[in-house]
Design a protein around this nucleic acid. Structure first.
Lengths: 110, 110
DNA sequence: GCCCTGGATTGATAGTTGTCAATATAGATG
DNA sequence: CATCTATATTGACAACTATCAATCCAGGGC
């Protein structure tokens, strides 16, 4: 699917079933407070990369749970990760966020 | 919570826990293909209002199931409904969509 | 009042999800 | 190689969700 076809907004035309399935899977990834905070921590970091070792202690959750949420964010195409020695660094993929924002933005004129 | 405080973007600063809970509940409502299509059908309608009797037959699902999804969209603040005689008409609440779009939009400068 | 129709609610059930404890894997270091 | 540390994976379980059939409620028409 083209990432940014014209007038992809929800309010522009009824969404096709297959597009709805794909979009919903990304929104579902955002539908959890822990994942939203993780994504926000990653996306708002100055250098653009955050070590998992900084993310995990920010929550009152076990390490496997955080790892699980990071995996879902990865599968949704919202973040990416790189191994640097023993550590793994995550960074945001802004294209996916922008796409969602475009989909949600109400058309200017009616 | 102020609906539109300055720099509410995900990528601007780490999201507070309570804001994450609230935002996640709305994204969760979008995290289902049926609801996404319902919302799109409602938001893209010319007159701004759609009768449930037009929404239900567009899906291969039972009437209670559609009613359930509409309820979740309502509870998320994404749509609103009005009774007109025997029929119930739904319309979109663009403020909520705009808020989400703002949250997702990547800040222009870094 | 009685019935019909549109829509919401209830109750039940199969499937999914968030969480943890336990374990595995990958890289660094001695 | 042995060991330690940082993440990921597996397995299990309680909580939640999407769905349907059955039922209820609200309005309109007779």
């Amino acid at each position: 699917m083209s990432t940014q076809e014209c007038c992809a907004a929800l309010a522009a035309a009824p969404l096709a079933a297959d597009q709805a399935v794909e979009l919903a899977s990304v929104f579902k990834a955002l539908g959890d407070p822990v994942r939203l905070r993780l994504l926000s921590m990653i996306a708002s970091t100055e250098g653009g990369e955050v070590c998992v070792c900084e993310l995990t202690p920010a929550f009152d959750l076990s390490q496997p749970t955080i790892s699980h949420h990071l995996k879902l964010l990865r599968q949704a195409g919202l973040v990416d990760c790189v191994r640097r020695g023993t550590w793994v660094h995550y960074r945001a993929l802004p294209a996916t966020l922008d796409r969602l924002a475009t989909v949600l933005r109400t058309p200017v004129a009616s």
